[in-house]
Amino acid sequence: MSARTHDMGGAPAGPIDRSEPPVTLTEQRVDAMMALLREPPLGLFSTDAMRRAIEDLAPDVYLGSAYYERWCYAMRDLLVETGVLTDAEIADRLAAVQQRFETEGAPP
């Protein structure tokens, strides 16, 4: 057995990229929505459930994704798991959003 992907203490890795790109609005929104969904009064899921949803992403998705990208996928999974949204309505809306930007340009 070996460590799960997120459990990376002691794993071989290269030099640290110390650059600090500014946080984007998309990232800020994911951060904010996750906090609002998690905290009272909504309290839809716990911090541990959020961590678990991130950890359960496929290893290639976890390692290939940006930090808040992982959060966004975990948020989608948690919203389905808690019955707030369904897979079908997310898929439909995602297609609609993509369609919209194909005709109108880049995301805001």
Partner: peptide, 25 residues
Amino acid sequence: HAATADHAPPGHEWEFLEIALRELL
């Protein structure tokens, strides 16, 4: 911002998902 391992390039697929989730919520 520039794309690095832990930072998605702008316009990445997942940013559409953020919009979709936010609109639905």
